[in-house]
Amino acid sequence: MAEIAVEIAYAGPEGQAVIPLAVPQGTTAWQAVELAMPKLPSGVRPDPARLGIFATKVPADRVLEEGDRVEIYRPLILDPMEARRRRAARGA
């Protein structure tokens, strides 16, 4: 079976990583993340519901294409609406 080149990307308080992988055609986004787990910074716990490809959220079962960069997103620490309210209250 032919392989395709993809990347897994993560950036967070644990560290940053861009992991190049060669995976079989038909590999899903989550399967690629599982393959990259040993190379991710210690403490990273990916969530299948928080994945994207080139800044577009995708389901974990999305089949990857040549050159895709799977991004692992972190949970939000603060709701964006609450952050706006706080900035408005400060006058910023």
Rank of each mutant, 00 (worst) to 15 (best):
R74V: 09
A17G: 04
P20Q: 00
S42L: 11
M81K: 15
T27G: 01
Q16T: 09
V70F: 08
M81V: 15
A22F: 00
V18F: 05
V23F: 01
V6M: 00
K57M: 09
R84P: 05
L35I: 11
G52D: 07
D61T: 13
S42E: 15
D68Y: 08
I72D: 07
A55R: 14
M1Q: 12
R74D: 12
E34P: 05
V6D: 05
I4R: 00
L76P: 04
Y10H: 01
R86K: 14
A2G: 04
L35S: 05
L40Q: 07
A88I: 12
R90H: 11
P46K: 13
Y10E: 12
L76T: 07
P24L: 14
V63C: 00
G52M: 08
M1W: 02
P13T: 14
P75E: 12
G52C: 06
V18H: 04
A11D: 03
M1P: 04
R90G: 07
T56N: 11
G15Y: 12
A60H: 08
G91K: 08
T28S: 15
R86S: 06
P41Q: 04
V58G: 01
A49P: 02
T28K: 03
V58H: 05
D47F: 12
I4G: 02
R85I: 01
V23K: 01
E71T: 09
E82A: 08
A9H: 12
